[in-house]
């Protein structure tokens, strides 16, 4: 099984391409692959629990999908940590670097 890192920089309401990316992540997960989804920039708009984004809800239910959000992007947009999904880890750039450099993990900027 492979390991993937998707760095999602775009708002899910900005383009269908973001939702297509969520679907791809789900398909990879269903095939048994381990996926990290790291939300950054406007990608963190998906992190609010009240965001109407059922595709992300589905990803958060999966054991082999791990979702993180960039702390600076969260703060920059005034998103309260309490309003973020409990399954999303708000973390720093060092975490993104660790996943990017992790042996065998394929990084994809989206």
């Amino acid at each position: 099984m492979s390991k993937y890192l998707f760095i999602e920089s775009r708002d899910p309401f900005e383009t269908n391409d973001v939702r297509d990316c969520y679907h791809l992540i789900k398909d990879l997960s269903d095939s048994g692959h381990d996926v990290v989804l790291f939300l950054v920039q406007n990608g963190v708009f998906a992190a609010r629990k009240k965001c109407k984004n059922s595709e992300l809800d589905e990803l958060l239910k999966k054991e082999n999908i791990h979702v993180y959000a960039d702390d600076y992007s969260i703060d920059e947009r005034g998103i309260n940590k309490e309003s973020v999904y409990s399954q999303i880890n708000v973390t720093g750039m060092d975490t993104l670097v660790d996943f990017t450099m992790e042996d065998g993990r394929k990084p994809i900027w989206h």
Partner: peptide, 17 residues
């Protein structure tokens, strides 16, 4: 087909978007 995309991508070591 989109349904085959996950298995297709997994045949590559590097994915550049």
């Amino acid at each position: 087909d989109r349904t085959k995309m996950a298995s297709f991508l997994d045949t590559y070591e590097n994915i550049w978007h």
